[in-house]
Every structure is written in structure tokens, then in C-alpha cells.
């Protein structure tokens, strides 16, 4: 059996172009990887996918005809997991549905469908965690500053929620792992990057000199509340860690002094 490897730029359009290429060449890969990843020791052929919006658009149109809205967002959302092992499953999910006369999106006994669907759920869960755990600190100029390191690239999915909820306050939400964030100026959202050597990007905490007047007091009030609301007779650190994993604690006001 021959082994074929596709390399692509790891964009979503690149993935769709890869599908287009496979049908055009009538050869399907056994492996899909990023352009700069090292190749395995043995293989028969490498095909380099050149992302082409015309091609990806045609594949997407074909999918739109077959899949439900939910399944389409399952594709784009699971993609934000950035998991390398997703690539081949996603590729096969798309091909299987193109080949089938009916949508297979609900056939969860198929490994590829199930993997992509489960990844979709995980990404949405991480989005929820941003909605839960991002904390704002109010800066002297009135901007609310929030920073996090999400497991998956979910800020694009969460930003609409924050914009609606905090419509009347300027804020920054920053993904330190992926080095970008969003700034909202009370009317629109723009993508931003910052100099991450600034102390509050390193520690996640605004220096007192940069805080709004009552910020310190409200942080203190919140920590007081957090302690007071706990019932001593029911202490349960395991449940706490399960629902609020330690990896987020660095940025939680109540878990830091």
C-alpha cells in the first residue's frame, strides 16, 4: 500500500483546499500535517497543498448543500482546537459526507464523525470557561483588562458574548498563549497585539499604579466574598479542582493576592 502525505498551511481554507486537491488528483492522503512539520521516515509521496480560496469555496458550497448548520459550525469550531490529530479526522469527515448521498453528521458510530463532534464539544466547553473565568481589572483610564491562556483558540467564539454583556464599558481580552486579543471601545471590537514584556502581561496582574481608584478595594471585597461564602463543613477541594482546573488559577482574582 502506498502512503501519501498532504502538507498544508493549517488554515481552515487550506484544509478545504486539501479536500479539493484529493478529489482532483483522485488520491487520498493517509497523513495530513503542517508545512513545517518534519516528514516521517517512510512514505511514497508528498503533496503540498497551496491554499486557494476559489477551491476551498467550492468545497464549502458542496458541504453547505449537504450538512445542517450545526454540522457546518461543528467543522469550523472543532478546527479552533488546533489539535494536530484532528486534521485527518476532519478531512475524512468532509470526504465521507461528500461521497454519501445523505448527511452522515449524526452517525456517531463512525470514528471520524465522533472525533470531530467530540472535539467540537470540547472547544465549546473551553469557550464557556472563558465566559466563566476571565476576570477584569479596571485600569486608571477606565478600560477593563482581562487576560487568559485558553487551551484552544476560543476568543473568536467568546468575544460576541463579552461585547453584548459589557456593551457600555471599554475592555481588553487577551490570549497570552496565542499572543493576540481584542479591544472593545464601546462601539466596536478590534484585534490587537501588545508588547508582552509589560509586567501585567507577565504576571496577569495590573500594577497598583495603573489601577482605577477603587479597583484594589473591589478585588479585596471579592476575595472576602469568596472566602466567606464557603461552608467549612463541606470543604471539597477535589470538586473545586474538577470544575475550576488549576491551570486557570493564575488569572483568577480570588485565587491571587
Amino acid at each position: 500500500m502506498s502512503s501519501i502525505i498532504f502538507q498544508y498551511d493549517r488554515t481552515f481554507d487550506g484544509m478545504l483546499t486539501a479536500v479539493f486537491d484529493a478529489y482532483a488528483r483522485r488520491s487520498f492522503p493517509q497523513m495530513i500535517q503542517g508545512l513545517d512539520e518534519p516528514l516521517p521516515l517512510f512514505y511514497d509521496e508528498v503533496h503540498t497543498v497551496i491554499t486557494d480560496e476559489e477551491k476551498s469555496g467550492r468545497v464549502w458550497k458542496a458541504l453547505e448543500k449537504k450538512l445542517s448548520k450545526e454540522a457546518l459550525s461543528c467543522l469550523t469550531v472543532s478546527y479552533l482546537s488546533e489539535l494536530p490529530e484532528l486534521d485527518l479526522h476532519l478531512f475524512k469527515y468532509i470526504c465521507k459526507n461528500i461521497d454519501s448521498p445523505v448527511s452522515l453528521e449524526r452517525n456517531f458510530s463512525d470514528d471520524d464523525i465522533l472525533f470531530v463532534t467530540n472535539t467540537f464539544r470540547k472547544v465549546l466547553y473551553e469557550r464557556l470557561r472563558m465566559m466563566q473565568f476571565i476576570r477584569f481589572q479596571k485600569a486608571a483610564d477606565g478600560t477593563y483588562f482581562g487576560i487568559m491562556e485558553p487551551q484552544y483558540n476560543v476568543l473568536p467564539l467568546a468575544i460576541a458574548h463579552f461585547k453584548d454583556r459589557f456593551a457600555d464599558q471599554p475592555f481588553v481580552i487577551y490570549d497570552k498563549k496565542r499572543h493576540y486579543g481584542y479591544y472593545y471601545n464601546q462601539s466596536e471590537v478590534t484585534q490587537v497585539t501588545f508588547d508582552e514584556s509589560l509586567p501585567h502581561f507577565v504576571t496577569g496582574k495590573l500594577d497598583e499604579s495603573l489601577m482605577a481608584d477603587d479597583e484594589k478595594l473591589f478585588q479585596e471585597l471579592w476575595r472576602t466574598y469568596f472566602k466567606a461564602v464557603c461552608i467549612q463543613g463541606r470543604i471539597n477541594p477535589r470538586k473545586q479542582r474538577k470544575d475550576m482546573p488549576v491551570r486557570y488559577w493564575k488569572y483568577l482574582t480570588e485565587k491571587n493576592k
Binding site: Q132, F133, H161, D168, F226, V229, C230, P237
Partner: peptide
């Protein structure tokens, strides 16, 4: 220009106290 919304059907837990609640 108001503040706040409630999200479709799900309530968000913002933190978990030491008793896990």
C-alpha cells in the same frame, strides 16, 4: 447602552468555592 445580559438558558458559574459549590 445598558449593562449585562443573561445567556440562553444556561447560568454561568464564575467560580467554585473551597467547598466545591
Amino acid at each position: 447602552s445598558g449593562l449585562g445580559n443573561t445567556v440562553g438558558g444556561i447560568g454561568i458559574c464564575h467560580s467554585f468555592a473551597d467547598d466545591g459549590r
